[in-house]
């Protein structure tokens, strides 16, 4: 059988076109540097911290930033830099755990609700019920009920944010399930789980990834609020929220105690938001079409 060779040579493949575009996105890079710095501080806490975070030196109380204590000391004479980097580990760790739990649970719920119409109503009404409460109030109530600990903070924040991720996943699943390639997979004998795993999930993830960066930021913020209000990991555990809570009484005399963790929260949230904006610009399919 003679087949007309119909194909002009293709352009050489471009590897990782999405990464290329991300790394040309200036705000994304700034976000990456900010957030990356925080992650490095958290991961390398033992190496970076000049002192043990819980070591109290009463003669060194209220030392301003300067020699010996780069960021100063607090009301117990603990080194703020050391507490800050260990606090980063906990705050970011809680944020990451929340992202992981909400990402997985939200994806499962969203996939089920968007793809199997029968479970859509009950699942989404349950999500609506959770979303009816103000996020921080709900987290506060759950954390207070479970008792102050890092794990409970993760549980509380996950319950708060799962409905949001589930909604976003469901919305994109509703679009993807109508695509012709899903029909094609059905026509070629694909089972529902195959179609969910091979087609629906990969094509629904982009908006979720964007949303998860924002949820990371909210979680860091919310965790510090919980800690500040005393329902997070209990003192003397160094979290950014605890540090601000302890520093607030001395804000006139020793502003640095509360300022450094506040600044850390600020930069982390800013970095994550910039990362999310960049991801949205690059992953948003509508923009992709325009760029051809």
């Amino acid at each position: 059988m003679a087949v007309e060779a119909a194909v002009a040579p293709l352009a050489p493949p471009r590897r990782f076109p999405t990464l290329r575009r991300l790394f040309r996105h200036r705000l994304f890079l700034i976000g990456l540097v900010l957030f990356g710095t925080m992650v490095v501080l958290a991961l390398g806490a033992e190496l970076i911290a000049p002192h043990a975070p819980a070591r109290m030196q009463f003669r060194m109380r209220f030392r301003p930033p300067g020699e010996g204590f780069l960021l100063g000391t607090d009301n117990f004479g603990r080194d703020i830099l050391s507490r800050l980097v260990f606090g980063a580990r906990l705050s970011l760790g809680i944020g990451f755990a929340v992202v992981l739990v909400t990402g997985i649970a939200g994806t499962i719920i969203g996939l089920a609700a968007g793809y199997f119409r029968r479970v859509d109503e009950p699942l989404m009404r349950a999500m609506d019920a959770l979303m009816a409460f103000p996020a921080v109030m709900l987290a506060l109530a759950i954390a207070a009920a479970l008792g102050p600990s890092a794990v409970n903070a993760v549980i509380a924040l996950s319950v708060v944010y799962i409905p949001r991720t589930a909604r976003i996943v469901r919305a994109s699943v509703l679009v993807v399930r109508e695509m012709e390639y899903v029909q094609a997979a059905l026509a070629f004998g694909g089972r529902h789980l195959w179609i969910l795993w091979r087609h629906v999930l990969p094509n629904s993830l982009a908006p979720l990834i964007v949303q998860l960066t924002f949820i990371f930021a909210y979680a860091v913020l919310a965790e510090s609020i919980l800690s500040f209000l005393g329902v997070g990991p209990p003192p003397p555990t160094p979290t950014w929220g605890n540090m601000i809570a302890e520093g607030k009484d001395y804000i006139r005399e020793a502003w640095w105690i509360a300022m450094w963790p506040g600044l850390a929260i600020c930069l982390t949230v800013l970095g994550l938001n910039l990362l999310g904006d960049g991801l949205r610009d690059v992953l948003d399919p509508r923009l992709k079409v325009q760029q051809g």
Partner: peptide, 16 residues
């Protein structure tokens, strides 16, 4: 379904 196949109209939407 292995005996029954389909070609779609839209060459963009029908390929993942």
């Amino acid at each position: 379904r292995r005996h029954l196949s389909v070609i779609f109209q839209d060459p963009y939407g029908s390929l993942d």
